[in-house]
Design a protein around this nucleic acid. Structure first.
Lengths: 109, 109
DNA sequence: TTTTTATATTGCAATATTACGATAAACATT
DNA sequence: AATGTTTATCGTAATATTGCAATATAAAAA
């Protein structure tokens, strides 16, 4: 075992969990926060900002990108990363949906 | 390696990533969705609802609980689980914060 | 063209997660 | 007390993640 049984769940469940999983590491939260703060976003800046090696940061960026949470575009020699809104929209809408449900029904425990 | 360097990141970054990580599995998304739908929430029902064994479901419930996303209270023989609002509030506020930032600054790539 | 700069990939070791059978624990029912 | 029901824990195998040194790639600068 050790492999998630993704085929037993719905598309939406798998998609949401993949987005959440991509945010499930403090370095990747830090990257998102940094991208929000500066709004200009050369990869090397992120490497300098984080207490991790360049290959490790590159890997985290790759995960955020493949999850659809950031975008990257080539800018001469370097690469410009920034937030991909659509991924965050899905997370936002899920969390708002949870809140909306909770307002109507009160929790039972 | 393999161990996350949590001590190199802020409290908030670690907390947010732990919440996200707890949602980073389709079974745990499915559990949350089920709890929202029924609002009554005996553990055994969740086990029946999911395509996973009882020990595996129990483990997922434990993770959601320790992350602060659900609460559980003993109800006679069985255990009643339900959503823990405070955990979801943090996720909601983060995703709304991201959206708010994005409205002001337009993405650069 | 050679060298430098910036980022990605490979390979690998350490650790974490996922899943479940077996079993324990705790309470309810008989 | 004995039995059944419900949930948790243990042990363990399979797989995934994290992190980095070494190396590759690609564009810029010299």
């Amino acid at each position: 075992m050790g492999a998630t049984k993704t085929d037993h769940f719905t598309e939406t469940q798998n998609e949401l969990s993949m987005l959440a999983k991509a945010l499930g590491h403090p370095a990747r939260i830090a990257i998102i926060e940094h991208l929000l703060k500066v709004n200009a976003c050369i990869c090397g800046d992120i490497v300098n900002e984080l207490p991790l090696s360049q290959p490790t940061v590159s890997q985290h960026l790759k995960e955020l990108k493949s999850a659809g949470l950031i975008k990257g575009s080539i800018e001469g020699n370097s690469i410009c990363y920034c937030i991909n809104e659509s991924g965050f929209e899905k997370i936002k809408s899920f969390s708002e949906q949870v809140s909306a449900h909770l307002e109507k029904k009160n929790s039972c425990c």
